[in-house]
């Protein structure tokens, strides 16, 4: 290996790898849950949760006075779980339907967050809207990496961004949830009445899915921003749904699409236009979300052709 190659691998690991890792972890976590959310017509719950976390972040800051990511994360998580509870509660008590309940809860909580921010003086703290929307993928760095060996070195791995560790834990929890309860989640999504009669509680499993979604969304927001989270809940699973009629296959395809979008989207943003000699500063999270959207468009074309030839 020439020194030039080594340097570029080191550069890749330090600058590009952590961003791709964050996008991939967030993408796969959201895609796993997205499979059930689209089947239950709850795909936009990610959008709702992206709004309700604001009051949680502000309260987390006010209680601790710190802008560390952990209190913000816990505040956001608490707000998301409260929102999920409120949505289910309003839906059950008033019977207005889950969509209307979602609309009421997320606008009200977002507005409360804005008021809290203005009244408490927390607004003086830098709140970067662009960061919240598009995330901060590019700023993820892994300066301890000095070669391929760092990928197996626990000490070097420990220096990866905190968000990567949190996302890996959340991915593990979500993976276990979906892997173990796959059969039950499918049953309550397809036919809740039948499931209830069997003693498989549709409400409890739906609520568990919502809580998992809240945890995944909050863990992913801080790393990749809300646009990418919303896209990753919907696009990989919707793409996969178009390509298969088996849920197990659909889940694997959605994971593959999420990984593909993370890698291809990041590389396109980082190197795509530069290789054409253009010097454009593209948002990596935006490009990953766009790639996932393009994958879905491609799947729609494939499906139409298949239907046409059948």
């Amino acid at each position: 290996m020439t020194p030039q190659d080594t340097l570029s691998l080191q550069e890749f690991l330090q600058i590009d790898f952590p961003s791709i890792l964050l996008a991939a972890l967030a993408g796969v976590t959201c895609a796993l849950l997205g499979n059930f959310l689209i089947l239950r017509r709850q795909a936009l719950i990610g959008d709702a949760i992206s709004h309700v976390v604001l009051p949680g972040i502000v309260v987390g800051f006010l209680l601790t006075g710190s802008t560390d990511s952990l209190p913000m994360f816990l505040g956001a998580l608490a707000a998301a779980v409260i929102a999920v509870l409120a949505i289910e509660g309003i839906n059950r008590l008033s019977g207005v339907g889950r969509e209307a309940a979602m609309g009421v809860v997320f606008t009200a909580m977002f507005a409360a967050g804005v008021l809290l921010l203005e009244q408490s003086g927390a607004g003086a703290v830098h709140l970067d809207v662009e960061h919240a929307l598009l995330g901060n993928l590019e700023s993820a760095l892994w300066l301890e990496a000095d070669g391929a060996a760092s990928l197996l070195d626990p000490q070097a791995l420990a220096a990866l961004p905190d968000a990567a560790g949190r996302l890996a834990v959340v991915l593990g929890i979500v993976g276990l949830f979906v892997g173990l309860l796959w059969k039950e989640l499918r049953m309550v999504s397809f036919d809740p009445g039948f499931a209830n009669n069997l003693g498989v509680p549709a409400w409890a499993l739906g609520f568990g899915l919502s809580v998992m979604t809240a945890i995944a969304a909050v863990a992913a927001f801080e790393a990749v921003g809300s646009i990418l989270v919303i896209a990753m809940f919907i696009c990989p699973a919707a793409t996969a749904r178009l390509l298969t009629d088996r849920l197990s296959v659909q889940i694997w395809i959605s994971v593959a699409v999420a990984l593909l979008a993370a890698v291809a989207g990041y590389l396109l943003a980082a190197f795509g236009l530069a290789s054409f000699g253009l010097n454009a500063d593209l948002s990596a999270a935006g490009m990953v979300a766009l790639t996932a959207g393009l994958a879905q468009a491609a799947a729609m074309i494939v499906k139409r052709r298949r239907l046409g030839s059948a």
Binding site: L39, S189, F190, D191, L198, D245, L247
Partner: peptide
């Protein structure tokens, strides 16, 4: 008790095979 809901009460555009649905009865 085994319960057969109305056919129209579920969305049949669901990614499952005939065998998958029958297996639900063996929960």
């Amino acid at each position: 008790v085994a319960y057969v809901p109305q056919r129209a009460s579920v969305d049949w555009d669901f990614p499952a095979s005939v065998l998958d649905v029958t297996l639900m009865g063996l929960q």
